[in-house]
């Protein structure tokens, strides 16, 4: 078993490893933003058709969240942040 002090440090293309971490976070963040955009683009026409709601997009823009869903939202946000910051947990 090699002493952990002898382990080869992870590769980074940047002189400052902080830059590499920031890039990783930015990519993770952008990925999650894309997931949401993709989901919304799928949802809106489905809902318009299934629920026969005209101008759904503008209706959603005028809506607010139900306070009962706050706990679910907090958990979801926590998972979101964990995913974005996951590379900070790596060596």
């Amino acid at each position: 078993m090699t002493d952990s002090g002898d382990l080869i440090p992870p590769y980074s293309p940047f002189a400052d490893p902080v830059s590499d971490k920031l890039l990783g976070m930015m990519i993770a963040l952008a990925m999650e933003v894309w997931v949401l955009r993709d989901r919304i683009q799928l949802m809106e026409p489905v809902l318009e058709e299934k629920l026969s709601i005209p101008d759904l997009t503008s209706s959603i823009e005028k809506s607010t969240h139900d306070s009962k869903s706050q706990k679910v939202r907090e958990e979801s946000l926590n998972n979101f942040l964990t995913r974005i910051c996951s590379n900070l947990d790596e060596q």
């Binding site: 590769y11 980074s12 293309p13 940047f14 830059s19 590499d20 890039l23 990783g24 990519i27 993770a28 990925m31 590379n87």
Partner: peptide, 15 residues
């Protein structure tokens, strides 16, 4: 640009 290209390649590979 090379540094960012390497970073993007490596991060997307891991992810």
């Amino acid at each position: 640009l090379y540094k960012f290209a390497c970073g993007i390649q490596r991060h997307t590979q891991i992810m």
